[in-house]
Design a protein around this nucleic acid. Structure first.
Length: 887
RNA sequence: GGGAGCAUAGCUCAGUUGGUUUAGAGCAUCUGCCUUACAAGCAGAGGGUCCGCGGUUCGAACCCGUGUGCUCCCACCA
């Protein structure tokens, strides 16, 4: 027997076991006759590092996949990363800048070779970090959304959807990120409340009869104004409609028009129309036949390029190159100098920002590629139906509402991005901007021949790449090459996947689109269950963020507490779909739990050499304890199964924790513990080892390292817990469970009596019991004696001595000790208990004498109330007898 | 502005179709113990107007209405 350390030392065991599991290839999966259980990881950004959100998400996936593996399913958890177009490109640009290289000085190919170099070097660190957490991923299947096959599948889907008329190219108002200089989808825009100012700008009428004042938050766009709009019912302005005003500074003459869109009671009731810079203005401009004048360039700086018709002044030209926010101040000042700013008010408004860069979004008219989502959904109505009718089950179900709302109000998806890192859009243009969509230039040339009768066309490929989510939505299929090589063995076996575990925040970005793609390309659901995790917050409920500095270093925590303790801490307080309030004290609890397990092991190791193989017969206390725990274990295993099937992982873990700590360690081990330096019965010892093994197996999905370690220390063996199959469930014997509960209750009550009467633990007592179920107590006697330190137990019909009396259920107990008895305190306690019982008895009695209750309640409920009443009566009688015996 | 959700012990949460609930657990707190696996522990205890108000019902933490307070999602009233 090797010497066991005082406490469990995870740092030494975690890496050892992970390496061992890898070496054995336990995480690798290939199709076979077994039922598959498939999870595809939500691919983290290739540039990412492990944070609390990942830890929560991946711990859950690992628990599910490990359990499936031990249930005999063919468990396959596919790892991988996402190329994360914007985020990665930004990182590479930053890296180049540090080296003194500007992106603009590079060709596309040069830039991409730097990007790949960077990806190879730094990408996927996060996957290595997942190993520290114990994640049992099938590393041979590691995928990347820019792998050659994956890339090809994305192009294939683009071409296919274009052919089906679901993808179109058009000039629309898009969300423009001036920092990364690309269009974004609506989902990538986050609205934030920002303090700004409302400027009241006066526009003079051309006929010299006065002016109209407009309230705007964006004076920098004034030079692009093409009209002033008022509500037709607004009496203040009835005389104005049809007249013209002069735009300050640029001196353009623009009409005053009327449209019901304008709300009279906001600002001055007059709205300036700038179709190039606002979605609603653009809509109004189109409706009223107004042109759009764009005064900002792609980087958000002023550009006079579209102002040439207005013969711009020196002042206007001097704005060129000024950033939009600086420009706002400048123009406001310059209009102020003209005396045409009436007032400036503080104003808090919603401003769209880029999810990735945080830059304030500009609405910009731009030629982009879109998916007609409405048409897509009409073609695939199952995408909505499957979720609403629980063909795809959402956990928690309330996420269905969110999903439903989004799909019912779905808008077109802008999928082109003005970036280089990503799948390049397979559209080919000639000099006259005619285009075809084709996978290769050769195909495109052939198509030009066919469509436009142009041979050997000189073509250029679209410069843009696709939105990252346009590749992610194929993830569950394409990790098995289901798009690039449809119907292959892996795809047929593993797809649709079993469970998806992801954050609620990407329900639209990702989950909804995967479901849509699933029905379009495979005509079935991509997964059966979706488990949504909440957000990880600090214990004050704040989001974790770099600015607040409240985001713990996960690897440091693993180093400090061990991976199992971290997993425990995360899981113990994270119900499905609810935010996780991360608190380091939960990790402490996890560490303590490790230690508890470790000490149980140490205890068994002490018994190992002292088991009595051929000696005395098993004692009855051991028999009952062994019998009880076997049943208790079966009972809890069934409970855990139910909880796991309902995805109540946190509850399941707490249930296992309590089974191990309370039932196994506090009760069972104490019940079978032999006297000091006494041998333990060999059969009992063997059973105990078996129970501990089963407990470790139950715990393994949650805490894989320590369970594997103890499993091997408990008994030298060749197999591993990691792949040990769960035994079939056996129903528990209720009578044995009930007897065990009674025993616990009696022990607790007697201990309480000892404490209250100042009987020292070491002082033995004599115990007398009056009970109607003598046989049951005979079974429990020896354990009871040991647990309450009784020198004798006598089951009799009457008590003949004075002592401390108490009742448990309807059984009466009398304790005789050398301590002097405080009769008054005894009486007081009994009277208090009696009063309590009486109150209860009366309330039940009241209920039972209520005719309406007896008439309306279900028979079994009435029966129950009768039983409660009878029990209370019996208890009252027992207490009264005890009181009478007290002189 | 529209929609969804939540409110139970100091904290984090369970509580299945209303009746085995006189509302439970973990953590924290308090008391006593270095008892021969474990003081990172053991034994025991205290702690709740189930957010307020009204209603339905024989019976409500649970169902309905309403008020209050939080959270999230959607929506560019300039």
């Amino acid at each position: 027997m090797t010497e066991l350390s005082k406490n469990f030392e995870p740092q030494q065991t975690d890496n050892k076991w992970y390496a061992h599991w890898m070496e054995k290839g336990y995480f690798y999966s290939t199709p076979d006759h077994r039922e598959p259980y498939t999870i595809v990881i939500p691919p983290p950004n290739v540039t990412g590092v492990l944070h609390m959100g990942h830890a929560l998400n991946n711990t859950i996936q690992d628990i599910l996949i490990r359990r499936a593996r031990m249930q005999g399913k063919n468990a396959c958890w596919v790892p991988g990363t996402d190329h994360a177009s914007i985020a990665t490109e930004a990182k590479v640009v930053g890296m180049l800048r540090e080296r003194g290289i500007a992106k603009s000085s590079l060709s596309r190919d040069e830039f991409l070779s730097y990007a790949w170099e960077w990806k190879e070097k730094y990408g996927g660190i996060i996957l290595q970090q997942l190993k520290k957490l114990g994640c049992s991923l099938d590393w041979k299947r590691t995928s990347f959304t820019m792998d050659p096959d994956y890339y090809a599948s994305v192009i294939k889907v683009f071409i296919d959807l274009h052919k089906k008329g679901l993808i179109y190219r058009g000039k629309r108002m898009v969300n423009w990120d001036p920092m990364s200089q690309t269009a974004l989808s609506d989902e990538e825009v986050i609205f934030k409340e920002i303090d700004s100012k409302l400027y009241y700008v006066q526009y003079l009428l051309t006929d010299g009869t006065g002016s109209i004042t407009v309230a705007t938050t964006r004076p920098e766009t004034i030079l692009g104004d093409v009209a002033i709009c008022v509500n037709p019912t607004d009496e203040r302005y009835t005389g104005f409609v049809g007249k013209e005003v002069i735009v300050p500074i640029i001196n353009r003459k623009i009409p005053i028009i009327a449209d019901e869109y304008v709300t009279a009671d906001f600002g001055t009731g007059a709205l300036k129309i700038t179709p190039a810079h606002d979605k609603n203005d653009n809509m109004l401009g189109a409706k009223h036949g107004l042109k759009a004048i764009d005064t900002l360039d792609a980087t958000g700086k002023f550009s006079s390029a579209e102002l040439m018709d207005d013969a711009p002044s020196e002042l206007v030209l001097s704005y060129n190159g000024i950033d939009r926010f600086e420009l706002r101040k400048r123009i406001a000042e310059d209009i102020g100098a003209l005396g045409q700013i009436q007032k400036i008010e503080d104003y808090k408004g919603q401003v769209g920002t880029s999810e990735r860069t945080g830059a304030v979004i500009e609405s910009k008219l731009s030629l982009q590629w879109f998916i007609d989502m409405q048409a897509f959904l009409e073609k695939n109505p199952e995408a909505l139906e499957s979720v609403m009718d629980d063909t795809i089950r959402f956990h928690p179900a309330k996420a269905k509402n969110t999903y439903n709302h989004w799909l019912e109000n779905i808008k077109d998806w802008c999928i082109s991005r003005q970036l280089w890192w990503g799948q390049r859009i397979p559209a080919w243009y000639d000099a006259e901007r005619r285009f075809v969509v084709a996978a290769t230039e050769a195909e495109a040339i052939a198509m030009f021949q066919e469509q436009f009768s142009i041979s050997n066309a000189q073509l250029k490929q679209d410069e843009d790449v696709l939105d990252t989510w346009f590749s992610s939505w194929l993830w569950p299929m394409e990790v098995f090459k289901g798009i690039s090589n449809p119907g292959n063995i892996d795809a047929a076996y593993y797809y649709p996947s079993t469970t998806l575990v992801t954050g609620q925040d990407i329900i639209f970005f990702w989950v909804a689109r995967m479901i849509m793609a699933g029905y379009e390309y495979g005509n079935e659901q991509p997964f059966k269950d979706v488990y949504f995790t909440g957000m990880v917050r600090d214990k004050q409920g704040r989001k974790m963020s770099k600015q607040l500095g409240n985001s713990p270093d996960l690897l440091a925590l693993i180093e400090q507490y061990g991976a199992d303790a971290v997993r425990f801490g995360i899981m113990v307080s994270s119900p499905a779909g609810n935010d996780l309030m991360f608190d380091e004290s939960a990790l402490e609890q996890g560490k303590n739990f490790n230690n508890k397990l470790w000490n149980a092991l140490k205890l068994l190791k002490m018994w190992e050499g002292r088991s009595n193989v051929d000696g005395q017969e098993s004692t009855t206390e051991s028999n009952f304890a062994v019998d009880w725990f076997a049943n208790r274990l079966n009972q809890v295993k069934a409970e855990v199964n139910t909880l796991m099937d309902q995805f109540k992982l946190s509850e399941a873990l707490k249930t296992i924790y309590s089974l191990i700590w309370d039932d196994f360690c506090s009760w069972y081990l104490e019940w079978v513990k032999p006297g000091f330096e006494q041998p333990i019965d060999a059969a009992v010892y063997q059973e105990t080892i078996g129970y501990f093994t089963e407990l470790l197996q139950l715990l393994h999905p949650f805490m894989p390292f320590i369970s594997e370690e103890i499993y091997h220390l408990l008994d030298e063996r060749a197999d591993d817990l990691c792949v040990k199959l769960y035994a079939p469930l056996i129903p528990a014997d209720e009578q044995v469970i009930t007897d065990g509960e009674l025993l616990k209750k009696v022990i607790t009550a007697l201990r309480e009596a000892r404490v209250k009467n100042n009987i020292k633990p070491k002082e033995p007592i004599q115990l007398f019991i009056q009970t109607a179920v003598k046989d049951r107590y005979r079974l429990l006697e020896n354990i009871l004696m040991k647990q309450v330190n009784a020198s004798s137990i006598e089951v009799s019909d009457t008590f003949t001595q004075q002592g401390i009396s108490l009742t448990v259920d309807t059984d009466k107990f009398l304790i005789i000790s050398s301590q002097p008895i405080d009769t008054n305190a005894q009486k007081e306690a009994l009277v208090k208990d009696l009063e309590h019982q009486q109150k209860f008895f009366e309330s039940v009695g009241k209920k039972l004498s209520n005719e309406k209750f007896v008439a309306n309640a279900k028979p079994e409920v009435i029966e129950l109330e009768r039983k409660k009443q009878a029990d209370a009566a019996a208890r009252m009688q027992a207490i009264e007898e005890s009181l009478a015996e007290l002189v």
